[in-house]
Every structure is written in C-alpha cells, then in structure tokens.
Design a protein around this nucleic acid. Sequence first.
DNA 1: TATTGTTATACTCTATAACTATA
DNA 2: TATAGTTATAGAGTATAACAATA
Lengths: 166, 166
Amino acid sequence: MGTGAESDAAAVRPVELGPLGETISFVLRRANAVVSDHIQRGFAGEAIRPMLYAIMMALRHNPGARQTAVSAALGIKRTNFVPLFDELQDRGLAERRRVANDRRAAALFLTEEGETLLRRLDELGQRIEARFTARIGAEGRTQLLGLLHRLGDRAFDADNDEAAAG
Amino acid sequence: MGTGAESDAAAVRPVELGPLGETISFVLRRANAVVSDHIQRGFAGEAIRPMLYAIMMALRHNPGARQTAVSAALGIKRTNFVPLFDELQDRGLAERRRVANDRRAAALFLTEEGETLLRRLDELGQRIEARFTARIGAEGRTQLLGLLHRLGDRAFDADNDEAAAG
DNA sequence: TATTGTTATACTCTATAACTATA
DNA sequence: TATAGTTATAGAGTATAACAATA
C-alpha cells in the first residue's frame, strides 16, 4: 500500500512543482533534458552525441573555420573543444589542416565519411524536429526558436541587464 | 594547406550557425546555458546551485513529500537526489524525518534556516526572472513557459510520437 | 516480489590554470 | 605581449547496477 496511516497527506498527494513551474530557468532545464534525451537516443545508433552533431553541422556550414571560431560559435570553450574534435578526427569524420600563413592555426573540415554520416543524421534530425513540431505546432516552433534566440544570444551576459532588473 | 594564403575566407569570416540555429535542440541548449549562468551567478553569494534551489522550492510547496516523489517531480533520478539532499541537510537547510507507518520512507522538510534562506533567494530569483522578462517581454515569457511545458512534459517520452514523426 | 533509500561508478558537459609554438 | 591550440584537472549533472531494509 505504501501510504499507510491515511492521514499522511503529503506522502499520498503527488508532488506539484508550484511556483517552480513558472520559473524560466527550471522549465528550460526540464525541456532541455527531455529534448536532449530524444537527440541522444535518436543518434545512439550512430554513436553521435549532441555536441558532436553540433560540431559537424557547424563545419558543414563553415568549412575551413578555425577551432577557436567554431567553439565560440557553439558556446564551447576552446579547451573543451579539443577532445571533442579529437574524437571526430580519430573516427575519420573530420580533420585538421594546417594553415599556410599562420602556423599556429588549424582549419577544420569534414571528411567525405563525415559528410556521408551527416547526411544520414540529417534524416534522423529532421524526424526528431518533426516530433517537437508535432507537440507545439509549426507556429509554436517558430515562436519558440525566436524566444530562445533572444534569451540565449550572448549579448545578454553583461551587466547591461542590471538596469532592466531593477 | 587547404585554403591557402589570402583567399582563406573561412578563417576570416565569422562562423555562422546556419541550419543549426534553426534546431530546437541546439537553441534550447544554448539558452539553457545562458540562463543557468545567470542563476548560478545570481545565487553564488549564497552558494546555492540551481538544483538545490529547485529542491528547496519543491519542498516549500510540498512539505513532507518523499524523496522518490520529489526527485521524480524535478526530473532527477532518486539515486542522484541523495547526495544533493545530503548537502542541504548537512548545511542545516532541510531535513529527513522518519515516517511512522513506513519505516523505509523519509519525509522531507525545510528547516527554519532553510525557509529563511529561501525567502532571501526569492528576491534574487525574482530579479533574475525580471531580467529574462525584460528580454522577451511579459507576453513572450508566458508564451515561452507554455511552449517549454509542452515540450518538457514527460508524456512526450514514449514511442507515441513515432507516429507523429512519420 | 516490489519499493524506499542508498552506495558505487562512469560518462558528458563545463570551467580554470598553465603550458607550447607561433605571431 | 598576444593569440591558437593544447594538456591537466576539477566540478556539476545524469546514467546504470546492485544492495539493505522494509513492505
């Protein structure tokens, strides 16, 4: 039975989020967890994690870009980017090429194999996006992307919101 | 070297996200990172992390709830909940009380000290929420919460979206 | 047998400091 | 001096497996 003595209301009543459910940070974290799960499971067959997928997508759209630029665009520290890209490289999905005029820099490219895999992932990714769209509608999806962009654009980090915060 | 001397446009051009920026999973992850940073920094003075805040909020709204119920509501595995709650307990902010009719279970409560701290956190939390609202507007915030709830509600996990996904 | 709480463990993502080789 | 990439390391969050006590 579990709940026992009968008067123990708190144990029986399902836990409600209350004001927490009206908190952007919490609701965002929850949605992110659920969505990440879908990506993770959807790409599990290819052993591609969300971060690796993001890197590959960025490389396709910016061939020859440098590590620092790519990692900045993705919101990853360049220090954390290194092992991620190493993994792609070790698996033959992407490569570093040395740049002539700056021998420190590395230009990043997908390999043929990486592009082939990415085309397979496109299908999976679109299926997953379609599930989200099915949940919130095409219009909801557009709204959501717009709102999240406004929240996530990094111009939002400094103290220039201190004023707005009161 | 790849792209070569001066014509190395990719190295100069800032990296653009491209289609990735139209991907719910990526945009959500980014927004979550930014928002989490705000919470983290906002609560740093009290040494409270977002997860601890969420637990305290849940306890205030559900005094006497059990570990399994609280962790499920927060989307934490009960196995991961244990050390989190241990920390609150060690700091005197919350406590486990044994339940009479089920000697396995623990009923969770905030302590006086925990409630006092939480009242301080309320102010901080509202200031942070106000920043988000300043970015996307009150209407945008309402829309966002609604959309995220629809995405994040865990009814969305099973294979019942396979149909919707086509 | 099933459930509540727990320990141990591992993986992903993130964060800081310090190093190298170039510029 | 500053920058591009790198190494080492630590902290959070999340995942699975297995256990003890109790139901």
